Amino acid sequence: MGTRRLFKNLDFTLIGVTGVIIMFGLVIIGSASTDYGWWMRLGLDIDKLQEANILQRLLWMKKEYVFKQAVWALLGAGVAAAVVYIPYEDWRKYTRHLYVINLLMLGAVLVLGHTAMGAQRWINIGPFVFQPSEFAKLIIIITLADFLAKREGRLRNFKELLPTFIFVGVPLIFILMQPDLGTSLVFIAILFGMLFTASSKPWLVSGLFGAGVAGAVGLVWAHLKFGTWIPLHDYQLKRLTIFLDPWSDIQGAGYHVIQSQIAIGSSGLWGKGLMRGTQSFLEFLPIRHTDFIFSVLAEETGFLGATLMLVLFGIFLYRGVRIAIESKDTFGTLLAVGVVSMFTFHILVNVGMTIAIMPITGLPLPLFSYGGSSMITNMAAIGVLLNIYLRRQKIIF
């Protein structure tokens, strides 16, 4: 395919929305990574901050976080371009290899992984640190799409669905051992999103999902009530349930949620302005450039800024759904559904946990939160969507 024809048939709406989200994210990351320590080193005090607007902008432009995120976005764009160039149908030849590589990569984390914040999720390669579980999301989408496409029309009962649960369950166990509960839940969202599309009886998949949720809630309730065993550490269980009543542990597990609610609740219509959010600037809000970046966005840009971001994500997801519908084959449809399921779950959980309607799982806001592995994986996933859209009709070639 000629480069000119390839370029002509890309989904420019999806590309444009992605670019706007990333640029918006760079601005908020720059603001979120500005803290009182900067001003202390400059000999400034709070009373003089209003007079330091120009200096603020200069310092922000030099932020290490912003620079790194921009580099990762550019690298991700290169990865996305490479993903677009290779016809997605050809990937089916290598899905077994990808599945094995995925298991080896996740297994290596347990042996060679770097531990931080109580979890062993990262691998150091020289000066670089990457999180294999991020890349595992996209690999499981590709391999599961092929697995389900080969079984089209043969997913009518639990017995026929069981191999699919085993297929996803094996890498899921490796991720739970790290432990990485957030990514494990993403795997489950991807699994059921793709199964709902692939099965000839979606009501069965819906029933299994409902039964699974009810069973999980029952296990948690039984553990809290009677002390029965549950496959979660105490801190994980606390993080999952604290959103129900964050004020029950103000200085502990509920602190993040409470500070996030204060930040969002005090923002008003227009917000407090970039680098003027008190919860962020004075460091009341923890991990504000990653997990709780939506709180910073809402506090500093207000209801209008937060709504704009959600609208952009809405357009992004709509394009993903359209690509899934317009795909020329089942494999392409399942790939697109898997990508949309991954992004949807991330967005709902990340935004939901900042306003205390979702558990705290440590999931970043796609394309927006700071993080190299997440950015490159998300950009590669967008490359998958563009690839499917580009080859949606055979007549194009």
Rank of each mutant, 00 (worst) to 15 (best):
L55V: 05
D329G: 11
L144K: 05
T228W: 11
K225D: 12
L98I: 10
K93T: 11
V213P: 12
L75C: 10
L176M: 15
P246V: 04
Y65V: 01
S327Y: 07
R121H: 02
S200M: 13
V337W: 09
W60R: 15
V220W: 09
F192N: 06
V213F: 13
A82G: 13
E326N: 14
L219F: 13
V321N: 04
S266M: 00
T278C: 00
I355C: 00
T361Y: 05
P132R: 07
L75T: 08
I54H: 08
F209S: 13
K238E: 14
Q120G: 00
T330A: 14
F7V: 14
T3E: 12
L390P: 03
T13P: 01
T18K: 04
F158H: 09
G78V: 12
V84L: 11
I396Q: 08
I230F: 13
K394E: 15
W39L: 12
A116N: 12
G78D: 08
V111H: 01
L285T: 01
I382H: 02
T143N: 03
Y370Q: 02
F12C: 06
Q236S: 11
L110M: 14
M105E: 12
L208S: 03
E300Q: 13
Q69T: 00
G193C: 03
M358I: 00
E283P: 05
I323Q: 02
I175W: 03
P286W: 11
